[in-house]
Design a protein around this nucleic acid. Sequence first.
DNA 1: AACACGTGGTC
DNA 2: TGACCAAGTGT
Length: 293
Amino acid sequence: MPATDSTEVVERVLRWYDEHARDLPWRRPGAGAWGVMVSEFMLQQTPVARVLEPWRVWLERWPTPTALAAAPAGDAVRAWGRLGYPRRALRLHRAAEAITEQHGGVVPDDLAALLALPGVGSYTAAAIASFAYGRRHVVLDTNVRRVLARVAAGMAAPPVAATVAESRLAEEFLPAEPARAARWAVASMELGALICTARSPACERCPVEDVCAWRRAGRPAAEGPRRRQAYEGTDRQCRGALLAVLRSSDVSVARDELDAVWPDPVQRERSLTSLVLDGLVVGDDLVGYALPG
DNA sequence: AACACGTGGTC
DNA sequence: TGACCAAGTGT
């Protein structure tokens, strides 16, 4: 058992959530499992504020997995807009095809079937099963990892890579009753997103401040600085520049038009090749380049 | 295990 | 002002 009284923490966080939950569109009853799934794809590494509008447009245009599967993959990539990581759009499209062909057009409700879908990893599978279907699963995203690290372990931040200890801890907090477990999953995420934030946590408004191990220890700083990945001048930035050209064009784009947006020819070639390899771009120097039909 | 993979907002 | 951060996945 953790030193922290998990039952008490869960109880208080659920009560806090009752009062402070954001009214996000994918949390409304009408959103459906597909609405939840689309939101989870869009929210991978992307802030809520930037997802709201693309999500609304997406669901209006493709209300079901089957509707999306019937559209060209390029339409999905274009509709993804500037959310970032456009491979997610491609994976979502491929997942919609798989759901259409293998699951009768219905988003699966069990972990194994969800995990088999492209772009669905352990977090997203648990999130869909929990949020859309009320199943009991540990939903361990960056918010929950941070909340548990602080409340129970007294650390400012969770380990860089997820550990079995974290999963075990999360399991101890998970209520036995499925509906309550699902509620805890979304509530603990919300606490991490609104109160127990990475930068400047609002402990004074936290429902579990007085039992938080990190708060009690005087909010000690994190261990070492985490080195982050560079972006400026990388292939990622180059790919983004190339794809931006193709996103904004309805017709095939000539090679020299792509050459104009990135100075280094070697990196440009490498990036374009990787985009084609990913399936985000189709074409060649002869016919030009475009998003996949 | 470590790295690739976009983009934009914040302090 | 640039470094950090945002509901991860795939290799």
